[in-house]
């Protein structure tokens, strides 16, 4: 037996390789690009053209919808993308294969985080561009950008972790898609994405308040809407402190669920 003289590759190098793999896997797959990245853009184009009414104070619904559709875009890039993507990789043997190599386990998750980050940034940039060019959306200014940044970061962290956790419940990618996609759609209807949140029945508001999407949309409304519209929120304010708290709580819950449920192999595989 020869003594091992060569060293294992450095973590940073493996992380870089995994990031490259995850970016190629996402951006080369037409379905994922269309459904995750372009779907919110299509929604913005259609809703902006159809529902361009004044919601008071000379603010158009499209300005209101901008906040919601960005929140929905983050949800798609993180929760939906992770739940479906990882469930697929678990059922087709990709995860089992990787866990049989000396790849450090952390590298898999680093790759996924880089993928979510890239898709989220791409979605937001395209949405802002389309909003400004087609519908004359007012961009945030000053400290609003800071709020934008932390809401997007916290929301996407919470939803990524939830997506990873949810992937373990599904049998395969298709069944993950069949449960997560309708769930996300319903959540979008009751969380103030497609309709003004203050016009949704109270009991639906209550349900929506359990999940992160409502809080992401609300935090982003504080970024895109003038201060006086905070009064028409059900709470009478943007509640930014509570937004941060709820999203942070979901980060903790999501992390706990991931640690408890993550499996490198398929359930059907014993």
């Amino acid at each position: 037996m020869t003594a091992p003289t060569t060293r294992l590759p450095a973590l940073a190098r493996v992380y870089r390789v995994r990031a490259g793999v995850e970016l190629k896997e996402f951006f080369r797959q037409r379905e994922s690009v269309v459904f995750t990245l372009m779907f919110p853009v299509i929604l913005l184009v259609v809703f902006g053209a159809v529902l361009d009414y004044d919601i008071g104070g000379g603010v158009s619904f499209t300005q209101y919808f901008m906040a919601g559709v960005i929140a929905a875009g983050i949800l798609g890039a993180s929760l939906q993308n992770m739940a479906i993507g990882i469930a697929t990789e678990r059922s087709d043997g990709t995860l089992k294969h990787l866990s049989g190599t000396p790849m450090p386990k952390s590298a898999y998750f680093i790759g996924k985080i880089v993928q979510v980050f890239a898709v989220t940034v791409a979605t937001i940039v395209i949405l802002l561009l389309v909003g400004v060019v087609l519908y004359g959306i007012d961009l945030p200014s000053g400290t609003q950008w800071l709020t934008f940044l932390w809401v997007a970061l916290l929301g996407s962290a919470a939803c990524t972790l939830l997506g990873i956790a949810v992937s373990s419940l599904a049998k395969n990618g298709r069944s993950a898609s069949a449960t997560v996609t309708p769930f996300a759609l319903v959540l979008q209807f009751i969380s103030g994405v497609f309709f003004r949140f203050d016009q949704i029945p109270t009991w639906m508001q209550t349900i929506a308040s359990v999940f992160p999407l409502k809080w992401m949309a609300q935090g982003l409304r504080s970024v895109f809407l003038p201060e006086q519209l905070a009064l028409s929120e059900p709470a009478g304010s943007w509640e930014l402190g509570r937004v941060a708290l709820v999203l942070l709580a979901w980060v903790v819950i999501g992390l706990g669920l991931c640690v408890m449920t993550f499996r490198w192999r398929d359930k059907a595989d014993g």
Partner: peptide, 17 residues
């Protein structure tokens, strides 16, 4: 793990790479 290679019955999964 660096010294062993594994070819699974199920293969290494689908890829765009």
């Amino acid at each position: 793990r660096a010294d062993i290679g594994i070819v699974l019955q199920s293969g290494a999964g689908d890829s765009q790479l």
